[in-house]
Design a protein around this nucleic acid. Structure first.
Lengths: 146, 146
DNA sequence: AAATTATTTGTCATATTTTAACGATAAGTT
DNA sequence: AACTTATCGTTAAAATATGACAAATAATTT
């Protein structure tokens, strides 16, 4: 458990406790793994890491934990990568925007009021009731530009 | 081949010809299948339909066709559904926005200037050079609201 | 037109990702 | 404590996607 992920886990524990969610051992372990990764990590990568902590874990353990964490708003799934990242804000929200660097693999979660509003306007105009949405923006991050 | 998809295929043929792209038989067949579906269709669903037209096709045939069509800008992949839809405009563009109805399964592709601009502004501010992006908005379409 | 090169196809095999089912265990309730 | 609900560990398999390679086709060059 690194210095970066311990505070996040503390926060997550309090966050879950306050909402009647059970941050059980496997869930907390998987959350720690995702946080520590610091970039998108696939379910099987997480499974491999988990295998260093517990004996011979199986895919459903990881998938179930990730589903829970996603529902709790603690991690997001990057659909275009089949991978997961820790939620930047650590708070519940149904919408996410990601800047995905195809060079170095990092993902930055951003919040954009205008984007939020643009989507709200569009859906309203179409008579569409929006649940959750995500914008995945692929490209090259600041660091990776020559 | 239905009345809806024949004109689209004519367009696609001209579109490819004009750009030096080869809309070969399997590619055209898969495109027809996606167009005719009228809603997101998975690679294996398309494979099953293709199996009614040619003898015992294999997954790579469909995946290769879909990859080509995607690159050509004729179909889009909906990442959150592992499925493909025909491009609404039938033109090349790196960005897409989809209103995905979780009730009836239809997908509407929309173009929103403000959304486009919001994403451009955000990426620019972060020093991020954007290649392609997509916004997948899940919810309930106008028809499906009681 | 023939030779050459590059692209596309068909096929086999396999890798990767995800889920269903079910009994065992633990937590929360009455 | 008895009951109900949620979670876990495990087995198995379903669903999704790709690598490799030889044969066929199309494009290009000679």
């Amino acid at each position: 458990m690194c210095g970066k992920c311990s505070p996040y886990l503390d926060f997550a524990a309090a966050y879950c406790a306050g909402r009647g969610l059970r941050l059980t051992a496997p869930r907390a372990q998987v959350l720690g793994i995702v946080v520590e990764a610091g970039k998108p990590i696939t379910a099987y990568e997480a499974l491999a890491v988990l295998g260093q902590q517990v004996k011979n874990p199986k895919p459903p353990t990881v998938y179930r934990a990730l589903d829970f964490l996603q529902q709790a708003g603690l991690v997001h799934r990057i659909e275009s990568l089949n991978a997961y990242v820790a939620c930047h804000g650590g708070h519940d929200h149904h919408s996410s925007q990601f800047l995905i660097c195809d060079d170095c693999g990092t993902v930055q979660e951003v919040e954009s009021g205008p984007l939020d509003k643009a989507i709200g306007d569009t859906t309203e105009k179409m008579g569409f009731v929006s649940g959750h949405w995500s914008a995945e923006i692929h490209g090259s991050c600041k660091k990776c530009q020559g």
